[in-house]
């Protein structure tokens, strides 16, 4: 008998026989906070930053913090920032030198400050939002939802190859519980809510 058969047959023999109904359609409609305010506050508490902005503000803001000499990958169409062309990058390892990636988020979750990104956000390289030194996400305010239950109602994760909820910059507290921003992933996250 293969291990597969052995494991499954042991499980069938040993599993509890009384059925417990699977809870479905879970949601809690008790969310009274303003979604934008909540999202901004929670993201700040986990080391990120979110501001309401229009395209002109975003352009000015980015030029304030990031010099043109840096290696930038911009996947948000309206910014007139000419960075590297990600289509020319064949090997994901070459992204190790990227200083800043600007991408568009699909959905934001107010209760935990996270943003849903799927692989259509990354210009063909899943590693982009992790390997870049700094990350900027542009997110439509109308795509904010209250909580994770609402988020999953909007998602069809079986239709994508890879996606994630990203909440803030990479961080660790593995040395004496001291919070350090910038473990392996992006050192900073700024979200523009448009």
């Amino acid at each position: 008998m293969s291990s597969r058969e052995k494991i499954l047959s042991n499980i069938r023999q040993n599993r509890p026989k009384e059925e417990v109904a699977l809870p479905t359609n879970i949601d809690f409609e008790n969310f009274t906070d303003d979604k934008v305010q909540k999202f901004v506050a929670v993201l700040k508490s986990i080391g990120g930053e979110a501001v309401e902005a229009d395209v002109d503000f975003i352009k000015k803001d980015i030029s304030l913090y990031f010099s043109k000499t840096l290696k930038i990958i911009n996947l948000y169409p309206n910014l007139e920032i000419i960075g590297e062309d990600i289509a020319q990058i064949k090997d994901a390892h070459d992204l190790a030198l990227v200083d800043l990636a600007i991408i568009e988020g699909r959905m934001g979750v107010a209760e935990n400050g996270s943003i849903w990104l799927d692989e259509t956000c990354f210009g063909g390289h899943r590693v982009l939002p992790f390997i870049t030194q700094h990350l900027i996400i542009v997110l439509k305010k109308e795509n904010l939802v209250e909580n994770m239950h609402k988020a999953y109602k909007n998602l069809k994760i079986n239709e994508i190859g890879f996606g994630l909820f990203l909440a803030g910059p990479s961080k660790t507290a593995d040395i004496e519980q001291s919070l350090v921003i910038g473990a392996h992933g992006a050192r900073s996250l700024k979200v523009y809510l448009v």
Binding site: V42, S45, I46, V109, E111, N112, G113, S114, F130, M148, I157, N158, I160, G161, F162, G163, L164, F165, L166, A167, G168, P169, S170, K171, G185
Partner: peptide, 12 residues
Amino acid sequence: QPVTTYSSHFQK
């Protein structure tokens, strides 16, 4: 924390 920084969904 309200959620882990990265909750990655691997599908394919």
